[in-house]
Design a protein around this nucleic acid. Structure first.
Lengths: 326, 326
DNA sequence: TTGTAAGCGTTATCAT
DNA sequence: ATGATAACGCTTACAA
């Protein structure tokens, strides 16, 4: 171990190996020709000197970028304060580490998708992962980043996506409710601008219509607070409701809380279901659908890092988790 | 909106503003002199052209690095799969974004602190945030990164830290238990290598000894699983135990779960407390101590980004949250 | 106050 | 197969 040596550069390695910088570069980057002898000597010198390529220099000359941007659409910067997003960012950072890439998060105002262009127009941005993706967002992905972008949610011809089968998941939930004898099934929906939310709603509607049951929708926003007020709204408008489908676990938990506070028994009087299977769900015995968030995020990140032609959409299954609330 | 324009460089801005590159640089970097007229023209040109500085180029010339490394000590890579860490990483990424820095996470094996040197010896690393910090880890922070490192947990003369008052938090909990009439208070501890865990244990011991009460410790590891087995162990060794202090909320939840399964009433027979106040805690009515994880992480990140002489240790308070479990 | 010019560490295009 | 040499976009003495 040398002590206070300055950081070794490619030049140092080349000199130590008795070759030119170009040769050293070729060997170390595994591109272009080099004699076996040169190879060996360069490799040798490199790890003797503890050579670590300078990411900034590399990125500069290649125009490649040094970090991956996780862009999240939402109505307020508050979307960044969310445990789901935490998982996505953290997982992305773990996947990026071996590639020498860092991760950044940013909020893109829902009504100004163009902001994405500003953020992504930075040459330092090597790739893009879209979260809460909207069609408008997909449209403003800079051309430079085509092939280096993946979406968690909906995709487009230019942007491959990793998605959850929200429709299938919701269908499974509704079917379970039906099988359990529920016939007055209401739903607390999510923001209409979110495709994943729309798909859940559509699955719900489709199934109920097919079964000749009444559709009872109340607008929600994923939050527990809205779940509480929505519970009251539902029972006020349709007192005979016997099941409430929540668009998220938080919403469902809010619903249950309010219901019980109002003396309504869950699931005896009203069954309640959630969506996502957050840790809280198992403790509160919430019946819900489970989704592998970490694997999904890792898949998205890997897509942009490996950038091999990916299938337009990779669907991850939604699996029903039966517990006590329904 | 121009369409397929090439990305604007500093040169472009300078030309558009009718000044030299250096002047433009000075204005945009807010360093050095520039006439008001020049300032205005450069600023103008910059945002007319949508100029975004190239982080790689900047990092290269400054030798500054392009990402912040969050290094986590632990016995296995499993430490990376943790919601607390998720929050730290995500918050760090949010704080770093405006600085044009990305974030990376890495695991440092507890028994090979030297691994940190390998990771941090990369010039691309602009700063370091240590998590689950040990003394050994503090010792191997490369000199280059002194002044650019912050620790969440213990610190050293070279590394400022952001810490939680674990001792105070635990004391408050134990005092509450005592005030509530509990006299046979056991504790499920955490890994001894973690300073924060040791401090909690010491606070617990100190208070009990002072009060002339018996010390009853069982080794734990923060997990809920260990909480379960520990609950049995405690009641087996000391059947008259009337309170169990958990080193973490997960542990406490495990304890409660096992206790109830074994027909022990909580808190009637045995009071149980946690530590951290995770979202689950409020739902399960767990009495615990609350800590502002996001603010702590933000403080640590800000320290390395701003690198103004920070106080050696910034303590964040631990605040008692009384609920039903104790 | 402003401009000129010399790098920062790599990669890539050429001749050789 | 190898080595000059010219970028990449920016900062910063230093000169004017």
């Amino acid at each position: 171990m040398t002590t206070a040596r300055r950081h070794a550069t490619l030049e140092d390695v080349a000199r130590a190996a008795g070759v030119s910088r170009s040769t050293a570069s070729r060997v170390l980057a595994e591109s272009g020709f080099a004699s076996p002898i040169a190879r060996e000597r360069v490799r040798d010198a490199a790890d003797r000197l503890g050579y670590v390529p300078n990411a900034a220099a590399r990125a500069l000359v290649r125009g490649a970028g040094v970090r991956l941007l996780v862009a999240v659409a939402g109505t307020s910067p508050g979307v960044l304060d969310d445990s789901y997003l935490d998982q996505v960012v953290s997982t992305t950072a773990q996947v990026c580490a071996p590639y020498g890439l860092g991760v950044t998060v940013a909020w893109v105002p829902l009504d100004q998708p163009g902001q994405l262009a500003r953020l992504a127009d930075d040459r330092a941005v090597a790739g893009l992962v879209l979260v809460n993706t909207t069609e408008a967002l997909l449209d403003v992905v800079p051309r430079r980043l085509h092939g280096r972008t993946a979406s968690i949610g909906i995709g487009s011809t230019a942007v491959p996506s990793v998605d959850i089968d929200n429709g299938g998941g919701t269908s499974a939930i509704v079917r379970h409710l039906y099988a359990a004898g529920r016939r007055r099934i209401a739903m607390v929906t999510g923001p209409a601008w979110l495709a994943c939310s729309r798909r859940s709603v559509e699955a719900y509607r489709g199934l109920l219509r097919e079964a000749g049951l009444p559709v009872r929708e109340v607008a929600g926003d994923f939050s527990a607070a809205r779940g509480r007020s929505a519970a009251r709204e539902v029972l006020h408008r349709w007192p005979d409701t016997d099941a409430i489908v929540g668009i998220s676990d938080a919403t469902a938990l809010g619903v249950i809380d309010q219901l019980r506070a109002d003396g309504v028994r869950v699931p005896a009087d009203v069954a309640v279901t959630g969506f996502d299977d957050i840790p809280l769900a198992s403790v509160t015995a919430l019946t819900t659908a489970s989704h592998p968030v970490r694997r999904i995020a890792a898949a998205a990140a890997t897509m942009v890092l490996e950038q091999r032609p990916a299938p337009p959409t990779t669907m991850f299954p939604s699996s029903l988790v039966l517990r006590e609330s329904a």
